[in-house]
Every structure is written in structure tokens, then in C-alpha cells.
Amino acid sequence: MASKLENNRRTDWAEDEDEEDPVALPPQQIIKNKDGTETIITWSIRDDGKRVKTTRRIRKTVVKQVVNPRVAEHKQWPKFGAEKGKPIGPQTDTTSVAENIAFRPTANWKAGTEDKGEQEKKKANLKDAKIKCRICSGDHWTTKCPFKDTMAPEGDPTPAETIDDVPESGSLGQGGSSYVPPHLRGRTGGAPTGEKMGGKYERDDLATLRVTNVSEFAEEQDLRDMFSRFGHVTRVFLAKDRDTGRAKGFAFVSFADRTDAAKACEKMDGFGYGHLILRVEFAKKAT
């Protein structure tokens, strides 16, 4: 008895499988919503064989228009030819609505669009180049990084220590390498003589905090509000993804005073914000 039942069930199951033809698609479904709109669900098969469900929500509005009687008469004409017998209204196989086009005539049209074209070209070039800042992983050149003077490249050992480990680097001819880059010259002995590049970006990095594990929905203003409790915040930088506009998860906060920064670092490290626990530390020194 049991085996018979089992058998029965198996045939049912097999039949079910047969019925589930991958080519067969559920029929179009139209749901009338309470707010007067309609939801149309249609199924189609994409080129790669996957089924695609398209859900469209439409609102029908009746626009009354007074027209010439001749035009009104045209509307009454029965359809003919390939359209014979088709219902009233545009058919989806021949008529569709294209995406919106902004058309705004302008007097000196040419100049405006040409510039835009140029900009787009530049942007396209940048996109292809896949730029990544070595300091903050942002999508700009390392030289354009707002933290190039305050931060070490990500993942690099603290440069100050490296220099301390190589005391010979100041004197020529000693050690493995005789070349000393300008910015390292004179670091070991007395006053720094090497020119520092990008001086105009020089900032008091002693009072800059690096905040990590920031929620991706964070806003610069939120951070500013949180940190200004401890003192005057001079600058907040929240790294954002260029494409999505969301935060990347880290930020830099500069204080006017180092003691305020120290206080903020102590208090805010481990602070819960946006379901995440902030990690706050002093930013590393850049080379």
C-alpha cells in the first residue's frame, strides 16, 4: 500500500516536472491598486535564457480634448491591415515610449554642449584609467589627495620610524643606496634642509584623527556634529564612493587643538554610530 502511494506520488511529481516547461511563461497579470494605479506584471525570456519578470505600475488619466470633427471621425475608423481586429489603444509590439529627452532651445547652443562634450571625454578618460589614491584609496591621484601631507600611504609602515632605523641615509656614499630623496635629506642631522613639496597643503596633522568603521550612510555633517563637542573642528573629510555617493567607511577629522583631538580620540573610540562601532586613532604622519 505504502509503495503504491509512493508510486502515485512519484508520477505526480514527474508530471509536475513536465508541466514546468521552461518556455512556458505565466500570463500577464494586471492588478488594480487601491490608489487608482494599475500594476502590470509581464514575463519574458531574455537572450541568455533567463526569465525576466517586469513589473510596471501605471496610472491612467483621462485627458479630454476638443478636436475638429474630422479628427474625431478618424478615431472611429476601424483598424485595418495588420492591425485588423486589434483592440483600441496602442499595441505594445509596435508602440512604446522612449526615455525622456530634455530639449531646451538655447541661443548660443553650440558653445554650451561642446564644453560638456569635452568634460565628458575627460571623465571617460579618468574612468578608463582606474585611478586610486595610495593614501586614502579614493578615486583621485595621490598628488591630489587632501591628506597627502597628513597621512601615510595606506598599509605603509610609519615613515618616521623607517627613517629612524636608517641613520646613515643622511650621509652620502654610505650604506647600500647613495641617493637620498630631497625630502629625506637632513632629517637625521639637525634642521631639515630638504624642500618639502606641496607646501601649501601643509596642515597640522598632529590634531587630525582617522575615523574608521564609519557607516556607509554617514554624512560629513553628522561627523562634524559628533566631534565638535570636543573642540573646534577645522575640517572633516568623509571618503565617498564616486559612483554610489555612499561613504567608504573612513573619515578624517581635524581639530584646531591637539588636546581636543586627544580628548575626542579617547572618547569617541568605540562610540556606537549607525550600528557600527567607531574606531578613532590619530592619523599617521605622511612622508
Binding site: 478618424h74 478615431k75 475608423w77 483598424k79 485595418f80 491591415g81 495588420a82 492591425e83 485588423k84 483600441i88 489603444g89 496602442p90 499595441q91 509596435t94 508602440t95 512604446s96 515610449v97
Partner: peptide
Amino acid sequence: HVICAWFSANGERLGTYH
């Protein structure tokens, strides 16, 4: 080879001429 007639207001096809 086919002529089509369309309503300009909504893009509905009125018919074809074969």
C-alpha cells in the same frame, strides 16, 4: 514594402496598406 498609419497623439497604429 508596407505603409503604416499611426495616430500621432498616442502612437496607436490605425492600419497598414499592403
